[in-house]
Amino acid sequence: MLESIRKPSKRGLPFPPEIMLLITLRYYATGSFQKMQKDVMNICQQSVSRIIVQVSNLIATKMKKYVKFPTDTEELNMVKQKFYEINHFPEVIGCVDCTQIKIRSPGGETSDVYKNRKGFYSINVQTVVGPNLEFFNLVARWPGSTPDSFIYNNSSIKQRLDTGELEGVILGDSDFVASNTLLTPFLSPNSIPQEQYNKSLYETRKLVEHCLGIWKGRFPCLQVGMCIKVETVVAVICACAALHNIAVSVGDVAPTNWEMAEIDTDVDFTTTNEDPNSEGFVARQLFVDRYFQNY
């Protein structure tokens, strides 16, 4: 990766690639140019900004190499087994969730689309997480106001699941629309098997929130927000996902106080009525009938 940075451009490279990488990692660790000043006193902010853009774009281009689903059947079966061992939820190959990454207002007439329901500007990032707290998929191109279900419905992961390219199910929360490949909680469970299904799904799905907590703890720029251009924010998000998976692959475990940062301990099982004839309800009930009737 450093060799790619080392390649000369028309203007030349005034800084060694190792220094450029360290400057970029320092930004990922702070999210603030002001906090970096004491560490890069001899480099002006404009140069630091250019370095962050260049290195982030380079690492982001490598994301698909490190962030991907297992394609081998044996590996995918191993993923299902590891998920099953968490709380006996079968056939799971991933857990999906979206998380808001803070940004500054991009300005312009369309800036409000980046303002999410919590009132701050953001990118709504969809992640699919594996059993080892790694990312299997990441989508980082939608403004903060975009609903989670819309992002999923327009994602390649949905298409790959629906066409059978990926065999199994993924688990989501009630922000997503249930189907035979994406399972969500029953909003008002009315039987012991449905309650057990909800409990098993919730306990298994904690993994994605756990992973997001580690990710944002490992790279605080994702938590505190970034005052850089939107396109650079996207590159930083993708770069941090690739670096996270590299860290997981070499056994770099995050400190415990980071691991719990993102977990929502409130179970979002409301009493809202559901249509028992809807496609999603029927798909969930068939899954319950098949796997949870013995509870």
Rank of each mutant, 00 (worst) to 15 (best):
M1E: 08
L2A: 08
L2P: 06
K10I: 12
L13W: 15
L13E: 13
P16F: 12
I19W: 10
I19C: 12
L25G: 02
A29Y: 10
G31E: 00
G31V: 00
Q34A: 08
M36Y: 04
N42I: 03
I43C: 02
I43P: 10
C44G: 14
V55T: 12
T61Q: 14
K64N: 03
K64A: 01
K65H: 13
Y66P: 03
T71A: 10
E74Q: 11
E74C: 04
E75T: 05
V79A: 09
K80I: 12
Q81W: 06
K82Y: 06
F83C: 01
E85Y: 02
N87I: 02
C98T: 01
T99V: 05
Q100N: 14
Q100E: 15
K102Y: 15
S105Q: 06
E109L: 15
T110S: 14
D112W: 07
V113F: 14
Y114K: 06
R117E: 02
F120H: 05
I123Q: 07
V125C: 05
N132R: 13
E134V: 00
V139N: 12
A140G: 15
G144P: 14
S145N: 03
S145T: 04
F150T: 06
Y152R: 07
N154E: 11
R160F: 14
R160Y: 13
L161I: 03
E165M: 11
E165N: 09
E167V: 08
V169F: 00
V169H: 01
L171Q: 06
G172D: 08
D175C: 08
F176E: 03
F176Y: 09
V177Y: 10
N180P: 00
L182P: 11
L182V: 13
L183E: 04
P185S: 01
F186D: 03
L187V: 12
P189T: 08
Y197K: 02
Y197T: 05
K199D: 07
L201E: 00
E203R: 15
L207F: 03
H210Y: 03
L212P: 06
I214V: 13
W215V: 04
K216R: 07
F219K: 00
F219A: 00
F219R: 02
P220H: 04
P220T: 07
K229G: 04
V230Y: 07
T232L: 12
T232A: 05
V233D: 09
V234E: 00
V236Q: 08
A239D: 00
C240H: 01
L243Y: 05
I246A: 07
I246P: 05
S249F: 08
V253P: 04
E259W: 07
A261D: 15
A261G: 14
E262N: 15
D264V: 01
T265C: 09
D266I: 14
D268M: 05
T270V: 08
T271E: 14
E274F: 11
G280S: 02
V282R: 13
A283I: 01
Y291E: 13
Y291M: 15
